[in-house]
Design a protein around this nucleic acid. Structure first.
Lengths: 217, 217
DNA sequence: CTATTTTTTTAGATTTGTCTAAACATATAG
DNA sequence: CTATATGTTTAGACAAATCTAAAAAAATAG
């Protein structure tokens, strides 16, 4: 069994591995964990000793199968709790991240299986992220970043790659929520901001925002 | 804000104060916390410094108003989660204590208020214990221990004063669950065990068990 | 290929909650 | 009222997770 802190390290290494084929570096973990590189080195040694990560000095880390499985389990719990908070307790999608960050560390596996059932085995969370099943299996939804689309292309909003409250509130205000159909009308040359149509409204989003909106064509 | 451990100490001091007018002793806390007296002394000092308990060396402790309010809040969370586990996730009353023991430490007050609402503001938990409202108010249900009843007396099972899985499973097997109507038929002289009728069945419980069953006459 | 910068690790200290062993205070018995 | 037993506190140590400062390795620039 892992401690609260060990679980957070595993989860962060897992997320960093998603956008990155190579070994994850100490500094990258330190930044996400809001801690110092020296602390990360200490924890890394501990996780390596427990066979949860592969580690060679100065060479970064990768998850072992056991570490990956533990990480996926935490992600599963996080996302199921987010569904619960939104569907059952009527929280908004921008309010649930921090609470789920605590709930994901509750240990009982029986609890999670019953919660999963209570929620009717949801396949994705309120931000469109896939929820692994109890064996750690999940479908990777193929998506394109909104910032990669060209003028005239159409698509559906499938997810977001940024979970901060500020970002999500901003999308909500613009009407850019999950499932909405959008059409690109123009990409501005000078700042790469994106003009698009959503529900008969013409709106504009910066490239920075567009990079974090995930589209199914 | 208190740590996980501080919260557990406050909760235990609160529960010990329920059956006891006097100051709570170091050893009593140590036993409930499954730790050593020396550790309790250390923690006691810390809680006293934070003005959560009143403490004079060798004289035991009592909760300050702030400490009591913090403790009641933890009890509220524990009991609401127990209701959730039983009513929504179909756990049995003997399975929920340990899980609620973890869930009670989740920090968000917004979460608890919404959970309370989702559960339709329950007044008592699956073991019959009252649930404080968000201001810490709750009704103390007047009850008598089954072991205090006399032959011929009738009553309703209102709660239990022991939450171990073994005890609760035992009651379940005997059909002695919340709300059941019972009639005492006989008290055995030699071992004080209690013979009673519940739903047309004649059963017998030891004095030890009878002491932990709470009855409304 | 050497010099400099960046990144990572080590060494040693700190905090939180715990422990054991010993000292001290209080309660109880004769 | 002294002796003993019980209960509590202190002193000093430890493990977990963190930190700062300094050393070491790797990457980059000229």
């Amino acid at each position: 069994m892992q401690s609260f802190t060990e679980e957070n390290y595993l989860k962060i290494i897992y997320h960093l591995s998603q956008n990155n084929e190579e070994a994850i570096q100490t500094n990258a973990i330190a930044e996400k964990m809001q801690t110092k590189a020296a602390s990360v080195t200490d924890m890394i040694k501990k996780l390596a000793e427990k066979q949860l990560i592969n580690y060679k000095k100065y060479q970064g880390v990768t998850l072992t199968p056991a570490g990956k499985s533990a990480a996926i389990n935490i992600v599963r719990k996080h996302r199921l709790w987010e569904v619960f908070l939104v569907e059952k307790l009527n929280f908004k999608w921008d309010e649930v991240h921090d609470i789920a960050e605590d709930l994901e560390h509750i240990k009982s596996t029986e609890l999670i299986e019953r919660l999963d059932e209570f929620l009717a085995f949801p396949k994705s969370d309120p931000h469109g992220d896939p929820i692994p099943d109890k064996n750690g299996q999940f479908d990777t939804i193929p998506f394109t970043k909104l910032s990669k689309l060209k003028s005239g292309e159409k698509g559906l909003i499938m997810g977001v790659s940024e979970h901060s409250s500020a970002f999500l509130k901003h999308l909500e205000k613009l009407g850019l929520t999950l499932g909405k159909k959008i059409t690109i009308t123009e990409i501005n040359d000078f700042d790469s901001s994106v003009e698009l149509m959503v529900e008969q409204k013409r709106i504009s989003v910066s490239r920075e925002v567009a990079k974090h909106i995930l589209i199914k064509l």
